[in-house]
């Protein structure tokens, strides 16, 4: 997004004036003048699992911070300064949402393939496969398998108000109170952690099978008829969510 020389000069003067007066009107005008930059940067983070509207919102917050903090006397172009601030805000958003910002596409694809490969090997071997066995089957190195496994674990601490990504639908908050006594027995839930009850039913069930009943991930996968990789992802996500809500 480029301004002509005259407009640039005008904006620079507005920044100088705003730095002195902190006039709300100037502030609004400056934000308005650069909103295109926020939208442009938000679009560059699109297709990563977050709605564009939300990203524009986040980028706008970054823009407002940039306008408020910009010091024109330092001689830096506002667009340079603001780009840095806005991108920082967007990255933080993804971090807080628990999505990996930089999982290479090749790794995402390998991760998706792994689900099937692991399921097949599980069946053929009658046990959970080793990394070396998966690597041979997938025709890639051990390291790539490890990296692809890690790529599916990109969840960080998700707040209870964040949408729970994937197939369980709805945000965590909407699932609050949707208890299912058949999923986790009352005794455990009461003595252990009311936090568990806040998770979507399927995640509760997986936690229960893994940590209360001691089933392995592969055993859970076959009982629920989903892939081991999926169980792994859901477990990682559940634990990250529990950790986040425990700290709130």
């Amino acid at each position: 997004m480029a301004f002509d020389a005259e407009r640039r000069k005008e904006l620079r003067e507005m920044f100088v004036a705003f730095a002195e007066t902190r006039s709300p009107r100037l502030r609004d005008e400056l934000i308005e003048a650069h909103i295109g930059l926020a939208e442009y940067l938000a679009r560059r983070f699109n297709n990563r699992g977050e709605p564009l509207d939300d990203l524009v919102q986040v980028a706008s917050v970054g823009l407002i911070k940039a306008v408020d903090r910009f010091e024109p006397e330092r001689g830096l172009e506002f667009s340079t300064y603001a780009t840095h601030t806005i991108v920082g805000e967007l990255k933080r958003h993804f971090r807080d949402k628990g999505w990996a910002v930089r999982v290479p596409r090749r790794m995402q694809e390998l991760h998706l393939r792994l689900g099937q490969i692991v399921a097949t090997l599980n069946q053929d071997l009658g046990r959970s496969p080793t990394v070396a066995e998966i690597a041979v089957e997938a025709g890639v190195s051990d390291e790539e398998i490890l990296e692809a496994m890690e790529a599916g674990q990109a969840y960080r601490f998700t707040s209870l108000d964040a949408p729970s990504p994937g197939d369980d639908g709805g945000s965590l908050s909407t699932n609050l109170g949707s208890d299912d006594d058949s999923m986790i027995d009352v005794e455990h839930r009461a003595t252990l952690s009311p936090l568990l009850a806040q998770l979507p039913a399927r995640q509760q069930r997986i936690l229960h099978l893994r940590f209360f009943e001691g089933l392995t991930q592969s055993e859970i996968a076959s009982r629920l008829d989903i892939s081991q990789m999926h169980v792994s992802r859901l477990l990682a996500r559940s634990l990250a969510q529990l950790r986040a809500s425990a700290e709130e």
Binding site: V118, S128, P129, T130, E143, L146, M149, T216, Q228
Partner: peptide, 16 residues
Amino acid sequence: AMGLASRLSFTIDEID
């Protein structure tokens, strides 16, 4: 940890 476990032939359940 995963790299070392894979050297020890852990299964992926164990690595998780």
